[in-house]
Structure formats: C-alpha cells, structure tokens
Amino acid sequence: MLGLIKKDLFLIKGNLKATGIILIVFIGLAIFGNINLAFLPVFISFVLFMSTFSYDEYNKWDSYAITLPNGRNNVVKAKYATTLILLVVSTVIVTILSILLGVVKNEFDIKEIISATIGSIVAIILLISITYPIIFKFGNEKGRIAMFIIIFLSSSIFAFLFKSVKISKDMISLLEQYGVFAFIILSIILLFGSYQLSKNIYQKKEF
C-alpha cells in the first residue's frame, strides 16, 4: 500500500506550485479581508487529491495496479490513507496559519479556530465518504458531478434550516456540549462504511 500512497503523493507534488499560489491568495484575503481560512485550503487539498483519480483514469493506471501484489485491496486502501494523510497535513498547516493570523490581527480566538477546523474536517470527511464510492463505481467524471451536487445540496439544506427553524438556546448549548463528539464519531463511522463499500465495489470492477 505504501507504494501506491507514494505514487499519489508524487502526482500531487506536480501540483504543489498551483496550490501554494492559491494558499497565498487566501492568506492575503484573510489578512486584508474577513474570511476564515479553515475551510478552503483543506478543501483545496481534497480537490488536489481528486485530481489523482483523473490521472489514474487518464493513464489507465488501475488495470496495472490490479496486477501488483494485493492489487485491488491496496488501491482502495491507499486512496483513503493518502486522503487522510493529506487532510491531517493540511489541517496542521492551516491551524498554524490561523493562529499566526490571529496573533497578527490581534483577534486570537482559539475556540473559533478549533471549531472551524473540526467543522471543515467533518465536512470533508462527509464529502469523501460519499464521493469515493461513486468514483470507484462510476468513474471520476461522475464522482465530480456528485461532489458538486453534495456541496450544493448540503449548503442549501443548512441555509434553509438556519432560516426556517428557530434554534432554541437549549439546542445550541446541547450542540456545544455534545455536538463536536457526535460529529466526530458520526464521520468516523461514515468514513469506515464508505471504505468498506468502496472495497466491495472495486473488487468487482473490470478494466
């Protein structure tokens, strides 16, 4: 599996420059404007990772990867593992940046940084968990479409909920107390389920 993780990291390496530029733009926006850094760069690393699926498809890598030792299982395992590695690395970078930014702008709020970071991780895990099985089943193109539909739907649902449902103070305090844990546990379950599903799908796939 390590070999396949390396392969994806090598692929991403080629795109690092572009990512760096995007990161700088967002840091600039965060310094002079008023946007929260937490979500976007982590999201960018996810999009970066999605690009490895396109390269795989374009170069017909999968049919070869299957012939390698423990091929089919390792392909799926490596994709999830690399995503998690990437998620951890980018979260660490972004958190450090956010803290630095907070210090520079003198609006240091560790609570906000933590909740924004956890929020973005949960959001991305949700996205991955739904998108990856779709990619493994139907290919990269449809996976991308699915991803945009999920983003669109979930943001509109949340917007709708916030507007129409009156959130009582009790609910907010309840969320503050248990919400984070519930979200983390839910996303771990979701991720694991998604991994199992992808594995099953990939076992049957032909190239």
Binding site: G3, L4, K6, K7, F10, L11, K13, G14, Y55, D56, Y58, N59, K60, W61, S63, Y64
Partner: peptide, 15 residues
C-alpha cells in the same frame, strides 16, 4: 501506457 505521466523513472523506482 499505464504509468502516471507526471511521474519520473526515479519515482517509479521509489514506488
């Protein structure tokens, strides 16, 4: 062809 195009022979070795 089945190797990812962005890789080098060196990368292939490492993989």
């Amino acid at each position: 062809s089945f190797f990812p195009e962005l890789l080098t022979a060196k990368d292939i070795n490492s993989v």
